[in-house]
Design a protein around this nucleic acid. Sequence first.
DNA 1: ATATCTTGGTAACATGGGTTATCAACGCTA
DNA 2: TAGCGTTGATAACCCATGTTACCAAGATAT
Lengths: 353, 353
Amino acid sequence: MAEQDKPSKRVQPRIARRKDVAELAQVSPSTVSLVLNNTPGPRIPDATRQRIIDAANQLGYQPNAVARALVTGKTMTIGVVFHYIGNPFYDTASSWLNGAWSVFHPHEYRILLGEGDEEKPLAGLYRQRGVDGMLMLVPPTSPEDQDKELQFMIEADFPCCAIGARLKADIGDYVDTDNFGAAKMMTEKLIQAGHKRIMHITGPHLFNSSAMDRLNGYKQALKENGIEIDESLIRYGNYTGTMGEDLLNEAMDEGVKFTAIFAANASTAHFAIKLLRKRGLDVPKDVSITAIDRPYQNEPLDYELVTYQQDTYGIGKKAGELLLERIMSDEVLPSRNCYVEGTFIDGNTIHPV
Amino acid sequence: MAEQDKPSKRVQPRIARRKDVAELAQVSPSTVSLVLNNTPGPRIPDATRQRIIDAANQLGYQPNAVARALVTGKTMTIGVVFHYIGNPFYDTASSWLNGAWSVFHPHEYRILLGEGDEEKPLAGLYRQRGVDGMLMLVPPTSPEDQDKELQFMIEADFPCCAIGARLKADIGDYVDTDNFGAAKMMTEKLIQAGHKRIMHITGPHLFNSSAMDRLNGYKQALKENGIEIDESLIRYGNYTGTMGEDLLNEAMDEGVKFTAIFAANASTAHFAIKLLRKRGLDVPKDVSITAIDRPYQNEPLDYELVTYQQDTYGIGKKAGELLLERIMSDEVLPSRNCYVEGTFIDGNTIHPV
DNA sequence: ATATCTTGGTAACATGGGTTATCAACGCTA
DNA sequence: TAGCGTTGATAACCCATGTTACCAAGATAT
């Protein structure tokens, strides 16, 4: 039987290894490590140091990150897990990422985009030792699955930070907007303008803590102002504009009376306004609207929503800081909750009753 | 001198290694590899196989990705290098990413976000052996630096794909919109409506091939229609809306006459329209506008731009496919250029002269 | 009984670099 | 000259895996 040749591989010019540098500089590989890593302790005279540094430069040597990760146990990589309905990466992700990036980049940490897989959403990155910490934006699975998946990470006190939704499991930190407070404030703005029949189109409150918090903030505002909660005014949505539109349509067809809407998020508000107009109503004359976040940040639309704009960049940054601290720390830090303040935008979508 | 204790580390429950599985299954570590990787050749009876699989499940074993990468030389990671003025990740990045993701995810490739560092933009990821291939969105440095930085990768035929701008260096593939064709088409739309004095606000044409191609497309359209190129109508911008606004302002202050604008990108168009309105002009009655791309994809604004919408998801997907093919292939593939078709949007920003 | 084949599996090496115990050579002192 | 400290560096081990050459034991053929 003829021995089979290996398939011919791309011919790659050998990338310099420690050994190559060592040979060129006439020292042992260990010495190269000692010098290039500036390891304290061993005394290497400047002449030798320089010889090694020159050799390294000449060869364009950079230590193999994989080998280094194997021996140090640190990959210098942060896993970022995004999840959104049907879309691993969604629009606003970029400002979160930029915030986190601003923290990690100076420390030479890289960002690895997460699994996005329904079956093994998180554990993979951790159990395969691929990352040193994890930033989670929106829990990837239902609460039950989470617990199972997160079990490994919890037991290991694996450095984690959740953004935009609290994890059910008590693991790592949580950074977000004060959704409860923001929702309460946005509802109060309507109440202060004299509104009493305020509809709330919610987010997926069963699976997402921010949606739940906003719903509770809405209820609290009503309570504190002596307005009875009318369940027919609460429409359970999922943060998508189309769903919000359908719910509103339905409510109006049912003949539910209201003079204002507090929408759980920007997209819901945007589509609600579109629908109201389509049905011949004026915003805000006929219906006032507040929300959380604003469609198309920083850009003028033909209305200016009264809203509470989350500081997504700030949230990403803060989350990065907490996570980095957690990674650096030798001790197990307690879980921390952290709210990043947003901005109230006083638009033109409220009209006094 | 008292011997110093190592700082106490987080106590982590030991993550199962191959060795642990081997012990539990009463076999050698090698056998574990053979079974779990389904290595062809060695004959392991089903009973033993099952014992190993059970042990692995029981321990939640997943092979250490780092060790595996070291020995195989494949990290199963794609580097994605984004660069934009001041912003490592910009808004539309998400659709590119989603396109690329749709290709890589099924093959178990992960995405590592690139350097974003002016000094060592690309070489790091490659030379440190961190990634198996690279997707580059917008060249990170000036053309000169690129050549120097890319030298290593070129010599190695390192799998690369550029998106949104050709690299000067001949390395890997290039996927983009047909910028020349699109620009020509958008200029022709204006010409067909009778316009002859058409201003073009460009992108950074000295550093970015897409901006250059669009400029050339604009010129070509004029030429083919017998319209002389008037340099005072070409304003050299950089794709940012604010810059475009300034340039337009300047041109108008200079008293340059024009009846239409072909804007190099969406942001430029958007800000141009805002400025024109601010200066009391109507779009399109006084000034017609076309562009490439549309501000705020998929959402209605109070105008509908006549534009050529790039298929960013498609570009990301195509780039992913070419890159993957390149990574999988043992041979050195020739450089390929590939245009992904976009969509013409027939808006309302053209008015016949 | 001996040679040969098959089955089932393992030992050993390689990957590239961090870390530490150790060591040779040299100069100085008693 | 022996003993000792210092300087300058290195050999050896470790990380967790993939891979291949090899081997022991039993079965079969001669």
